[in-house]
Amino acid sequence: MTLLSITDLDVFYGKAQALHGVSLDVTAGEIVAIIGPNGAGKSTLLDSILGLTKRQGSITFDGQDITRMAAAKIVRLGIGYAPERGHLFPFMGVRENLLVGAYRKRDEIDANLAKVFGLFPRLEERQKQESATQSGGERQMLSLGRALMSSPKLLIIDEPTMGLAPRVCQEIAAVIRDLNQQTGLTVVVSEQNVNFAMSLAGQVYLLETGRIREKGTPEDLRQKLDIAETYFGA
């Protein structure tokens, strides 16, 4: 079953066009990775799913047309978003940040807190710490945790490994894999770290200068793209 379907998406920043006719399908239960160099349009694409850009085309989620929907409503339909740079609330503690994530899902707060603390014990140890004083890795965990607090059907993650040490990247990868395999959560993740993306995803899209250049399984893409290394130095 297709959970998310994007067709012919054009996105503009003022007059500049950042995405050109992007189409993408996500089947329920799978992990889809969007790879591409800096400035390719990965964040723009993910922001667009959340209704945060000026866009044309069509986006449907879980059978509903969300192309023109406001972000708050899209979140309520079941999309959790961990955006680039986190957009956490710097002067709130860890727990408070998570509680804001539960704004639309107040009946499941206790269960979701337990779930997030189970995935990231470090967050549970420092519930009062303001996110402004957290390390990069902790912030990424909090960002994922906040997104999970709305009990999403689809989790969207923008470059989770950006600026993180390899060990932390592995930790994050393990959590994403667990969520997907154990709870059947569908995940869309963007990455410049090709190895990270390829090791997680069932489907990979390569985005370049606002267009989808290739798509397929990680094996397909590896074969088609020996050049990937020249692009990403991976």
């Binding site: 708050a72 955006p83 710097p90 709130m92 539960a102 639309r104 997104a147």
Partner: peptide, 21 residues
């Protein structure tokens, strides 16, 4: 929840938006 949402918007508007506020 409402009070926290007010603080959330004041600290990071986009963060609040993607939390469903």
């Amino acid at each position: 929840h409402l009070g926290r949402a007010i603080r959330a918007v004041s600290m990071d508007r986009r963060g609040a938006l993607i939390s469903g506020i």
